[in-house]
Design a protein around this nucleic acid. Structure first.
Lengths: 124, 124
DNA sequence: CAACTATTACACAAATCAGTTTAATAGTGT
DNA sequence: ACACTATTAAACTGATTTGTGTAATAGTTG
């Protein structure tokens, strides 16, 4: 039952080790917590995934895309903007959001891939 | 100011796109949220990082390593165990924890790498 | 300026969460 | 059986978070 790794996965490494001997610093752990926290919300994840597939999109269009109110969307876009993950551009009445931190999207992509892997494993 | 990507980073892809045209499903977003949530806590991150560097470790040793009470540690280890990220083995009085989900550790490693990248960028 | 649209700001209520405290459980040694 | 250690369970508190409702702001159009 412990033979979890079939070596036919697309994301998971066979074995991960941390080369450094030192434990992670409390400061770095806090930074990591912040990073994961911003991704630990299904609304923000859907916003990010939506924005990652287009050049830019205005709030009401995003709200329609995820079927939520513009207020709720604006709340979360603000948080993504505060972290520098997305940025805005005003054009008339609309405010257009776009992804500027590709790294975070890369992390999201990796996480989605991991989930797919475990689903595959679960089906065996 | 928008030229963020210097192409000398170690983790961040230059540009990430999601090949699929469909938006992420609410169900998958919820799964992702759960995955990131478990990582969105500095205590759990320190536990994971500690465990990823050894074969296995008992609760009191982990508690010492991160300088917290065994009760607090046990709380979080339980949550990691519930998700199948770590597993336990009893030996006498001690209960030894070990990492069994290397994928999650891989995600942690990638996140740490991203943070290092942004620090490097910030210093420029 | 007035009416309208798009977005954000703010206060709020419900839910979730982390660490503490206290108590219970499991195993060891005498 | 008893004392002891290691770990977990359960209840509790304070803090954080999310979407909602309402109001405010910015821009457009007539």
């Amino acid at each position: 039952m412990l033979h979890k790794h079939k070596h036919n996965q697309t994301c998971c490494p066979v074995h991960v080790t941390f080369p450094e001997q030192e434990p992670i610093s409390a400061e770095k752990a806090a930074e990591l917590e912040d990073l994961f926290k911003i991704l630990a919300n299904d609304t923000r994840l859907r916003l990010l995934h939506t924005l990652a597939r287009v050049e830019e999109m205005c709030v009401c269009d995003i709200a329609n895309a995820v079927d939520m109110t513009p207020q709720a969307i604006s709340n979360q876009l603000q948080r993504l903007s505060d972290r520098g993950i997305v940025a805005t551009r005003r054009s008339g009445n609309q405010i257009y959001y776009r992804v500027v931190d590709e790294c975070v999207v890369g992390l999201l992509q990796k996480a989605m891939c991991l989930l797919d892997d475990s689903e595959k494993l679960a089906k065996v």
